[in-house]
Measured scan of single mutants.
Amino acid sequence: GETKIIYHLDGQETPYLVKLPLPAERVTLADFKGVLQRPSYKFFFKSMDDDFGVVKEEISDDNAKLPCFNGRVVSWLVSA
């Protein structure tokens, strides 16, 4: 499998796309960081919350699996 991750960088209009050679349910924050090489950023991901619906959730645990929608991951990188 392959996972497409779209990421928005510090408010830039056009998002970036990276592809990881892993199925979406196995991709972790560490996998994503390894491709990006951007150490001083906070990582937020499109996520579903039972109370609020669609939210941007910050993930900082490198072992955390990334939230996935239709085989895609959507993220926002914010300068720390």
Rank of each mutant, 00 (worst) to 15 (best):
T14D: 13
F43Q: 00
P15E: 14
V73H: 05
Y41I: 01
E2W: 11
L22K: 12
P67E: 07
V73A: 06
F32C: 06
A30M: 07
V73Q: 07
S47N: 13
F69S: 10
K65W: 01
V35A: 14
L36H: 00
E13A: 10
F44P: 03
N70V: 05
D31C: 08
L77K: 09
A80N: 14
F32N: 00
D31G: 02
V55K: 14
K65G: 07
N63Q: 11
F32I: 07
D51M: 09
V18Y: 05
A64H: 10
A30Q: 07
P15W: 06
V35I: 10
G53Y: 15
F43T: 03
Y41W: 08
P15D: 07
F44R: 02
S47K: 15
F45T: 05
E2N: 13
D49P: 14
I59S: 03
N70F: 07
T14M: 09
A80P: 14
L29T: 05
V18S: 01
L20S: 04
K19F: 10
S75Q: 00
D10W: 01
F45Q: 03
P23H: 06
S40H: 13
A80T: 14
S75W: 05
T14G: 09
Y7N: 04
A80C: 12
A80F: 11
V18Q: 01
H8K: 06
E13H: 07
L17R: 08
R38I: 10
L66F: 07
L77M: 08
T3L: 02
G71I: 09
L77C: 09
L29G: 04
R72L: 15
Q37H: 12
S75M: 02
T14S: 11
E25G: 11
F52M: 14
D50T: 12
Q12C: 14
G1I: 08
K33R: 03
S47W: 06
A80G: 13
P23E: 08
V74P: 00
E25W: 07
E13L: 07
E13I: 10
F52P: 07
I5C: 06
G34Q: 14
V55N: 11
K56C: 14
R38Y: 10
S75V: 10
W76I: 00
G34A: 14
L9Q: 01
C68R: 01
T3V: 08
R26E: 13
A24S: 12
Y41Q: 08
D51W: 01
L22M: 12
S47H: 10
D61Y: 03
K56E: 07
E13S: 11
L36D: 08
V54Q: 09
V54A: 13
G34D: 15
L9E: 06
E57F: 09
S79V: 03
K42F: 13
E57S: 10
I59A: 07
S40L: 09
V54R: 05
K46F: 06
